[in-house]
Amino acid sequence: MYASTDSISLPDVTPELRQQLFSYVLQLADTSLILAHRISEWCGHGPVLEQDLAMANISLDLLGEARSYYQYAAELEGQGRTEDDLAYLRPAVEYRNPLLVEQPNGDFAHTILRQFLYDCFHYHLLVQLQAGPDRHLAAIAEKSVKEAAYHIKWSSEWVIRLGDGTDESRRRLEKAIGSLWRYRGELTTPTTTEQTLQAAGFVPDYAAIQQQIDAHVARVFEEATLPVPQGVFMQKGGKDGRHSEHLGYLLAELQYMQRAYPGMKW
């Protein structure tokens, strides 16, 4: 799914391409961080202990991935900022995460569907990034894809269980689909930066990834006895910095300690 491009290291790229890579890696970092924080809000509130621990572990996986991306983004930027500066000291309009991951948890079915929609994209993206020309990005993807494989298995099984479960579990999942499906399209709608990097061979073809996502969603929904929504208008803007009101509240909590006590060390 990549154009033919030899592997590169940081010194090999032009300043313009380096800036584009910085923006893209920052987008990946923001996405993992915001979703990690959202899932962490379930800690101690899960429906059963096993799933409480499962969500905590998924949150930690995403947080670790975010740290790797932020560290690489800071290196690409070369302005002396650290991973903490990028994570904690930017306003909401500078975040580039898609709208889906900042949506509130809602009930368990709502959280499961949000995770499922993201996992379908995340897993297939990481599979492709492993084969990309940026060796640093490929290494992060190679480590993270092992965790993402568990995430998509976990969320897929829960969609099936809730969809083909009780009348109440199905009702709640259908309500979640009605609320969240509209944010699915942004994941594979490339921004100007992503289009530039796709043309240069550094970002995989999202259209091909979308086909893989659609096939996986269709299989899971069929087993869950759920219809796949059709003709839904897709919301976008998060990857360009236009967010819902939910992100500001999330960042107020996420960034509080670092902003209240700048440079604090544990």
Rank of each mutant, 00 (worst) to 15 (best):
A29W: 02
H136D: 09
Y183P: 02
D12S: 15
R38Y: 03
S7Y: 10
P98F: 01
S144N: 04
S59Y: 10
L125C: 06
V145C: 00
Y70T: 08
K153V: 06
R81A: 05
E50T: 15
Q258Y: 11
H151L: 01
A138L: 02
T192A: 15
T5Q: 13
V217L: 15
T188S: 08
Y70Q: 02
T189N: 13
Q51W: 11
Q51G: 01
M234T: 10
Y88D: 08
P15N: 09
G44E: 12
E222C: 07
T191D: 06
V159P: 00
Q103C: 01
A141C: 02
Q195F: 04
Q211L: 13
T191C: 00
A131V: 03
H246Y: 14
V127C: 05
L53N: 14
G241T: 13
Q103V: 07
E83A: 15
E245D: 15
R67N: 10
R184W: 14
L247M: 08
V48N: 14
L117P: 02
A56I: 06
Q51I: 12
L197F: 05
L63Y: 11
H243Q: 14
L63E: 07
I160C: 01
Y150H: 13
F221H: 12
L99P: 03
V217N: 02
K175W: 07
I58C: 06
M1L: 09
R171K: 14
P15Y: 11
F116G: 00
S68T: 09
E147C: 03
V101Q: 05
D167R: 13
A215T: 13
L254I: 10
E41F: 04
T196C: 05
I177P: 01
A218G: 01
T111L: 15
E174Q: 14
S9Y: 12
G163W: 05
Y24W: 15
H122C: 04
L89V: 09
G165C: 08
G106Y: 09
L28D: 01
A200H: 06
T14Q: 14
V220N: 00
A139M: 07
L162H: 04
A149R: 10
E147V: 06
K236L: 11
E41L: 12
I39R: 03
R38C: 01
K143S: 00
R172Y: 03
V159Y: 05
D134R: 02
A87K: 01
T111C: 08
Y150E: 08
L21A: 08
V220M: 00
M1R: 04
A54T: 14
Y123C: 04
H151P: 02
A139W: 04
Y206N: 04
G163S: 02
F22P: 07
